[in-house]
Design a protein around this nucleic acid. Structure first.
Lengths: 264, 264
DNA sequence: GAACCGCGTTTCGATGAGTGAAACGTTCCG
DNA sequence: CGGAACGTTTCACTCATCGAAACGCGGTTC
């Protein structure tokens, strides 16, 4: 899918090479990278060499793979780092109480993006992983985003296409509308085996200091085992507490961590 | 700090702009970025615009900050992702047992780099964070790396300079040698308030299929509360189990996920 | 209110970094 | 042994990139 125009600028071309790594790719050979980016082999080769020199890519037997530098840079991204660090204690509390999968998610287009995940062996094994995403309309957190965070969420989601992940996924616009209405009324989101068979979830919204929904916390586990209505108050409490902390933080100087040890 | 040569290649210049973000920087204004990279304002300005268009940077009130795309790319870095995902269950087990800070670390030059951290409210609050680093000679995990993973670790560490983080940090080459000998003999690493006052740790090595030390698992907490000698077997057991799993995985086809659908 | 500053943004002609077709070197087939 | 598939190197042309200079704007000074 060497889709779209090849950018003229060197920088954009180089970055496109990074974007060529998708999902579960590990090693990609030159040929594939050239194909996917639409760049001539020779050009790709030269740019790749520069990316390797920088550390964003590593050479391997079979070709190239994403490298260390990118992981480190990624950990520095502030919007997420702040949110994750503030949220972790609350996620951990929920985990201690339930021993189920606890997620912190943010909206990303019409997807839910998992920023953080706390779970253990006793938790239901689940597809989600940090950095992974699922369509919003099939997840508890995503429904919150469609209802509160994404402008005109219902329409946006419908236009993007209501993918069916399981027989229970809500793929009819009318039903989704009803569901989002329910979310608005109740204030939390629920997912009944809509993303994975046998797996359910409850989610509550996290607000920033302007009372905008910027994230969501959820608990996910076996549909049979989980009593969603009973868990909802716990998730909501955690989400509220986090919201309050975020509001407080951005009242006083927000960003600076006082004792943050030098990191090199 | 505009150190070193300004690279001539556009790509390298652009990437250098990303590297200009250090440690706890949040927003950097154009002026600072131009200064740090040594690029003329006009040039920096243009390249920054391209990085923003790509998503690696975001514009803010005060200037530029690292963006979403980088976080997502970072989560895809395979070497770390595989290791982290394999390790998580074992880290979680250790956490369940001890309720202390559990770390997964890898060597990075003469530092220990924390890839993953599992902790809770009951755990000792600690400086470490995912993606953060500490000098190897001051940490339990780091000593393992100096003893087993870094070629000529003792000398390398000494040449890099034995920083003192606390009064107990080992900063005399002779003492460090003795300590590393002890590590080799015992097979695990220990840290007695050498990185942070009042905080101790035990670490055990994780081997790859070639029996090379590639990572380490550690438990960290209040020096008073933690009985390191008692915890050592637990950490070692977890590390061995993880090592065995890694060996097994790389015996049968390691990398390829069978169902990993073609990616676009 | 005029003169000044620091900062981000835009302009534009000269120029050398970047380009990519083609040739080359390997390795792995049948 | 001939050929296919892939990574690597070459090199003369050319267009994207460069950056000094000019501009615009908000704030501060006198």
């Amino acid at each position: 899918m060497s889709s779209a125009e090849i950018p003229r600028s060197v920088l954009a071309r180089g970055l496109r090479l990074l974007d060529a790594f998708r999902a579960d790719d590990v090693d990609l050979p030159l040929r594939v990278l050239a194909e996917r980016t639409g760049l001539p082999k020779a050009t790709a080769h030269r740019l790749l060499a520069e990316l390797v020199a920088w550390g964003g890519l590593e050479r391997t037997q079979g070709g190239y793979r994403l490298g260390m530098s990118l992981f480190l840079l990624g950990q520095r991204v502030p919007r997420h780092r702040e949110l994750r660090e503030a949220a972790l204690p609350y996620l951990e509390d929920l985990y201690e109480i339930t021993h189920e999968n606890v997620h912190l998610a943010v909206p990303s287009g019409t997807d839910t993006l998992f920023l953080e995940k706390v779970s253990g062996r006793r938790s239901t094994p689940i597809v989600s992983r940090v950095g992974g995403r699922l369509p919003a309309h099939c997840t508890a957190t995503g429904k919150l985003f469609l209802a509160f965070a994404v402008p005109d969420g219902l329409r946006t989601a419908c236009e993007a296409g209501l993918t069916r992940l399981t027989p229970r996924s809500i793929v009819m616009p009318g039903l989704l509308r009803a569901e989002l209405d329910r979310v608005v009324r109740q204030g939390h989101g629920i997912n009944h085996e809509e993303a994975e068979i046998g797996v359910s979830a409850v989610a509550a919204p996290v607000f920033d200091h302007r009372r905008q929904v910027i994230a969501a916390i959820s608990i996910t586990g076996w549909a049979q085992r989980l009593d969603l209505e009973r868990l909802a108050p716990a998730v909501r409490t955690a989400a509220s507490a986090l919201s309050r902390e975020l509001a407080r933080d951005s009242a006083n100087g927000t960003l600076r961590l006082p004792g943050s040890a030098g990191t090199t």
